[in-house]
């Protein structure tokens, strides 16, 4: 004999088994209906506040040898442009202007050589200054130089810093360049930049502080009595790729001068394939 549990006289509650069965049925039917429902459209993107233009993302830029060559080409043009500005401002002594004229001619020739190298490898020549480098470094530096208490002192310092930055940049990009022949061609120009930097340093400070920088000569100071970095023809044992400090301009109300550090190219400085001028 089977004894059944009485059902009629129990309260109308939901036991655990019923809840699981009915709950599962409800979820299953809901999923089916949801899958079969029509798409009524409408914007599902997060809401925006304000009327600003939509942000546009940059194309993905591949870093390859052509990009690196074009980047150095743009930096050669940037330095040439800086020298032109400082020349027009009368920033060089007659003797130094002779050097600067030669440097400017070298930068033009180097830019052309790099443009030809880019084209020979399927790229496009970029015979313009580097926009990022100009706005971040050259323009503010030139602004400080133009209103300086000693324009010639500052133009000499800025020129040395720019040539040093070029030397560091060429050397730095050797490690990113993949084709050995491209490395060779880049370092031909990098060696020239190192020579220009050393020549300016030797003429500016070798008589007072010697040729060897503080890392090679414990008696060589980093800065002069006014806080300006002292250039050295041989600042260290190995060629460097670090940032180049610059201090120029008049003393401001807070007692300091404009200072910045020129840096070797990075992702934000590279002249990618999709850029042209």
């Amino acid at each position: 004999m089977i004894r059944r549990r009485p059902t009629t006289d129990t309260p109308a509650g939901i036991d655990r088994r019923t809840m699981l069965r009915n709950g599962g049925l409800a979820v299953g039917v809901g999923a089916l209906l949801s899958a079969c429902a029509k798409n009524f459209g409408g914007d599902t993107a997060p809401g925006r506040v304000g009327v600003a233009d939509e942000a546009t993302s940059l194309p993905d830029g591949e870093i390859n040898d052509v990009v690196l060559v074009r980047t150095m080409q743009s930096l050669e043009h940037s330095v040439a442009e800086a020298l032109r500005l400082m020349t027009e401002a009368g920033g060089y002594s007659a003797a130094l202007q002779t050097y600067v004229d030669r440097f400017a001619a070298d930068h033009a020739a180097n830019g052309a050589a790099l443009g030809a190298l880019a084209e020979a490898n399927g790229g496009e020549s970029y015979a313009c200054p580097n926009t990022w480098f100009m706005s971040r470094y050259v323009e503010p530096m030139y602004g400080a130089v133009a209103s300086s208490d000693d324009v010639q002192r500052d133009c000499r310092a800025a020129t040395h810093a720019l040539e040093t930055m070029l030397a560091h940049s060429y050397q730095f990009l050797v490690g990113l360049t993949t084709e050995p022949e491209h490395r060779r061609q880049m370092m031909l120009l990098g060696a020239s930049a190192a020579r220009r930097s050393a020549m300016l340093a030797a003429q500016a400070s070798a008589g007072t502080h010697g040729y060897l920088g503080p890392s090679l000569n414990a008696e060589a100071p980093e800065t002069d009595g006014l806080g300006f970095p002292i250039p050295y023809a041989v600042p260290s044992t190995f060629g460097r790729v670090d940032q180049v400090p610059v201090v120029v301009g008049a003393v401001d109300d807070e007692g300091s001068r404009f200072s910045t550090t020129l840096q070797t190219p990075a992702e934000n400085t590279f002249v990618y394939d999709y850029l042209s001028c």
Partner: peptide
């Protein structure tokens, strides 16, 4: 090899500076 190239490039840079010093 990139690292070997970097080392050689740094030597090129420095020896180029040596030339300027010696000329001076």
């Amino acid at each position: 090899q990139a690292h070997a190239a970097e080392v050689i490039a740094s030597i090129v840079s420095s020896e180029s500076r040596h030339c300027v010093v010696l000329a001076d």
